[in-house]
Design a protein around this nucleic acid. Structure first.
Lengths: 189, 189
DNA sequence: GTCTATAAAGCGATAGAC
DNA sequence: GTCTATCGCTTTATAGAC
């Protein structure tokens, strides 16, 4: 073997990162294996030393993306309402709206995950429920946690369909405002 | 011409209806022209007498679907809060969750619309803003109207990714509960 | 208006050389 | 581990017969 032992793992990691970005930007089913590999400077044939099929890659992307989202959104360690507020502001920002490839996978790939295999959906459910539990703990309400999560995802889906930047911003700002309002008068954790 | 004058229009309508259902169920980019035509009992070649391209069909689907959603969700005529509550209950129902093909296009095709042409997105924006205006009138708040719209779309996107029916129902019920709570204490229209 | 046939390109996946 | 070449299938779109 002419390649170092860590090389395959590194290549796999680069492939996962690059593919996730492309999938969130242009849709996973839309982009071909050849384009995925070309983006990291490799040929299409080399793909199958890292994954047995394109579907397997999709599963790994979902796993990797949602675990990252969980980290960013406060699944790790103890959380307070102030930290949650900062996460919400970032999630509902114009920067997140304009850069699907660098953002959360739920608004960008939600519909494709829903049409995916049971394994992929189970993987997604695990991470989503972990995030929900963390938020429910912070908020003291399981119902409110689900509601806010849905609203965040929906706001990005809706806003990204629009053409006018000012209306896009209204959609994001409205959800942010309404959520902040719901956080007022909540018992401190 | 051996066909009646209304025949082409009828065929076009059947094609639009059938294609919209397939697109919402399995994704628009995923399904091929041949499958779209076969579903209404015609061959793939006949497609291009009705639309010049597959993209043009997508635009017509979005137009038709969103105009129907606007009707169902209360864009037509005057509306009151009681009627809006009934719409919300239906939108956030398990039946809607389980039948994407018969339901609203926003959760099912939102990401694909976002990646679509400016024309398609402009069309989507027009209908979405009309719905928003109707709801804002009923609710007396533009911000609350955007927030509820985002939450409805997001709840379906999130719930449809999950595997467990009971958690799916929790997601829908949570958004419904939180929205109803926000409607309490609102001035009557 | 719809059919069959076909062109031209792209897809996912495999085989063998290096 | 990656490359090139290729198989077999599907895709969007067009051409010509009926």
């Amino acid at each position: 073997m002419r390649y170092s032992v860590g090389h395959k793992q590194e290549t796999r990691e680069r492939l996962l990162q690059s593919s996730a970005t492309q999938a969130k930007n242009n849709g996973f089913s839309t982009v071909g294996v050849d384009a995925l590999m070309k983006a990291i400077g490799l040929s299409g044939g080399a793909f199958y030393t890292h994954f047995t099929s394109k579907d397997e890659l999709f599963g790994s992307i979902v796993e990797r993306e949602l675990s990252q989202s969980l980290e960013r959104l406060g699944g790790e360690g103890r959380q307070n309402q102030a930290k949650l507020r900062r996460c919400l502001k970032q999630y509902l920002s114009v920067a997140h709206l304009q850069q699907p490839g660098a953002g959360c996978a739920l608004p960008a790939l939600g519909a494709e995950i829903a049409r995916g295999s049971v394994e992929v959906r189970q993987e997604a459910q695990d991470w989503i429920c972990r995030l929900h539990q963390a938020w429910a703990q912070t908020l003291g309400s399981e119902s409110l946690a689900w509601s806010i999560l849905s609203q965040c995802v929906g706001a990005l889906v809706v806003a990204r369909m629009l053409v006018s930047p000012s209306i896009q911003q209204q959609v994001l700002a409205s959800s942010h405002e309404q959520i902040i309002g719901q956080l007022e008068g909540l018992p401190e954790d």
